[in-house]
Design a protein around this nucleic acid. Sequence first.
DNA 1: CTGAAAGCGCTTACAG
DNA 2: CTGAAAGCGCTTACAG
Lengths: 341, 341
Amino acid sequence: MPTIRDVAHRAGVHPSTVSRVFSGKPYISQATRERVLEAAEALGFQPNAIARSLTLQRTNMLAIVVPHVFDGYFDDTFFPQVMRGLLQVAYKYGYRVLVGGSGGHMDEVTQVYDIVGSRQADGVIVLSHRLDVDLIGALLEFNIPFVVMGRPDTPSAEVAWVDAQDRRYTAEVIRYLIGLGHRRIAFVGGDPDVAVTVERLLGYQAALEEAGIEPLPEWVDYGFFVEDGGYQAVQRMIRLGSRAPTAYYAANDLMALGILRALRERHIPVPEAVSVVGTNGSLAAAHAHPALTTLFVPYAEMTARAASILIRSIQTGEKPREQSQVECQLIIRASTGPAPT
Amino acid sequence: MPTIRDVAHRAGVHPSTVSRVFSGKPYISQATRERVLEAAEALGFQPNAIARSLTLQRTNMLAIVVPHVFDGYFDDTFFPQVMRGLLQVAYKYGYRVLVGGSGGHMDEVTQVYDIVGSRQADGVIVLSHRLDVDLIGALLEFNIPFVVMGRPDTPSAEVAWVDAQDRRYTAEVIRYLIGLGHRRIAFVGGDPDVAVTVERLLGYQAALEEAGIEPLPEWVDYGFFVEDGGYQAVQRMIRLGSRAPTAYYAANDLMALGILRALRERHIPVPEAVSVVGTNGSLAAAHAHPALTTLFVPYAEMTARAASILIRSIQTGEKPREQSQVECQLIIRASTGPAPT
DNA sequence: CTGAAAGCGCTTACAG
DNA sequence: CTGAAAGCGCTTACAG
C-alpha cells in the first residue's frame, strides 16, 4: 500500500503537505493540491486509518459488546433492532461500529475493559446492565464516553442513559390483564441477573399489589429470553392445576412464542382459556397465531439516541450526561382476552 | 492512560522490556517479568491496540458492511444469523468485528474500499454480491483476504466463497410444488440486482421448464426482501384472475409473511387455495399461521465458515482460496398442500 | 503556503 | 536476558 511518503515523493512535495491536503487543512495552494491529488490518484493512495487514529487519539469507532453469543440471542428482535439504531446513526456521522462477542457476563466485562483499555473505540454503548458486575464503575474510571441502555440501579448524574421505563410499562401490561379479569398472572422474565428483569418483576409485583392480588411464588419464572424458556415455564406452571395462571406476561416475544407453543401442544385455547403477552413488538409476534399482544419497546430508537449522545460527547469532548426516556406501547392483538369464568 | 513508558519507568526497565513482557516474548527473567507486571497492575496499564496495530500491520479485526441500513433489513433473520456465525468464530479466535453501515450498494462499495484501503481490518466478509459492481475485482487489487457469501457469477480460483447452492435448492422447492400438482407458481425474489436473486430465478425457471411449464412473465416479481414486498406481489398477481398463481415461492420468510398477510386479508385459504413457501427457516416462519414451509439456509454456519477461512488466511498469510458449499433444507409445514382442483 | 522535526505508543532486529 | 534505536504512517506546532 502506498503511504503519504510515496505520494509526497511523486508530487515533489513534503509528506506534511500531503497530509494537509488529505486532512482538509486550509492554506494549500490550488496547484499543490492538484499535484498531490493527482499523485495520490495515480498511486491509489488512501490514508492509513490506524496511523491517523494513533496520532489523533481518535478511532471513529463506537463499541458494543454482545453479552452472550449463543443461538437464542440472535433469534429475538432485540439484537438486530439495536444494531439498526446504532448503525443508522453511526453511518450518518461517519463512524464505524466495533462489535465484540462474549461468552457470558464475566467475559463481556473483560471485553469491554479490553476494548476501552486498549483504546480501540471512542465511545461505548452498554447493552446489558447486570446487577452482579460494576461495569459502569469501571467505565467511569476509564474516562471514556459511554451510554447505558436502561437506567442503572444506582443512578448517578455522571452517567448517561436511555431508558424504556421497564417497571412502569410492565405494570401497565399487568393492569391491562387485571382489567380483563385475570387474577392468576404469570411473569416469565429473562435472565434474573439483568437489571431489566428485576425492573419488570417490580412492575409486575406493584400492579398485582395495587389490585390486592397476592401472587404465588410459582407464578414467577425465568426463561432467559429464549423460546424454550417460555415453553418450559408453561410446563412447570401447568402443574399448579386450578392455581395455574390464566395469563402470562413474557419479557420478550421469543419466550411468548414458546408459551404459545406449549399451550397449543396441550390444546389450551388462547385467549379463551389463557392470555399471553410478549415484549418487543417483533414481526414474529404480529404473525404468530394467535397474533401476539406485545409490549413494543423501541430498541432501535433507544440505541439511535444513545449513539447520538455518544457521538456528540466525542465531538465536544464533554462527558455524556443526558438521561432520557422513551415510551413503549402495548399493542393489543388476539392473544389476550377476558379471563375464563 | 498509562503507556509502556510509564510502566518501564516505574519498573526501572527499558520500554522494550515491558513490550516483551506484554507480547509474550521469551527470554525475560522471572524477576523482571514480575516487576513489570506489578508496575503495570499498579498503573492499570493495558497496551494500546492502535499502536500495536500500526507496528504489527495487523488489526485483529474482521470487517463486514451492511449493504443497506433500512428497517426491513433488520426484520429478517438473515442479518442476525450472519452476525451470530461471524461473532462466534471471531470471538473464539480473539478477533473483533467491524461493521460498516451503508445507504445502498454504491455506498457499500465505497465503505468496503474505505475500510480496506485504510487498513482498518485484516479481512473482509462480502455479504451482498451485486451484479452491477465489481467489488471482488477491487478487493483482489487490495490484496486483502476476503471471502464471499455465495458463489460469484464469474468464478475464479483466486476467490474464496461459501455457497448455499441457491439455484439448485430453489429448483428443488419448485419441484416440490409441482409435485403437489401446482402449475401456476409465482416467484417473489429479493433485489433483482443481487446475485442470489438471479440464481434463485434461474432455479425457478429450470424446474418449470423441466416440467414443461411455460411461466407467465407476471408470475415473477421482486419484493426486495421486505414484508410489504411480498404483500404487494400478491396484490399484483391476484389481478391475473384465473391465471393467478396457486403457489408462491418467496426468497425470504419476511416476504412470505407478507404474502400470507395479503392472502389472509382476501380470505384466500392457505394451503387449500394457495400454497406459500418462504426462505431462511426463521423462527417467525415456524410460528406463522399457517406455519410456513420454508427453505432453511444455514446463514450462521456459512458465515462461521467464511470467518474461519478468513482467519486462517490471515494467520498463515496465504490467500484464501477455499470454495465450499453448504446444504439447505426444505422444512415442510402447513402452508403448502396439493394444488386446488 | 510549505518544509523539517517531533511525537502518537508500540515492536523488534541489533548489540552487548 | 536487556537496552538503545529505528520504524510503523500519520499530524501539527514551529519556522520561514
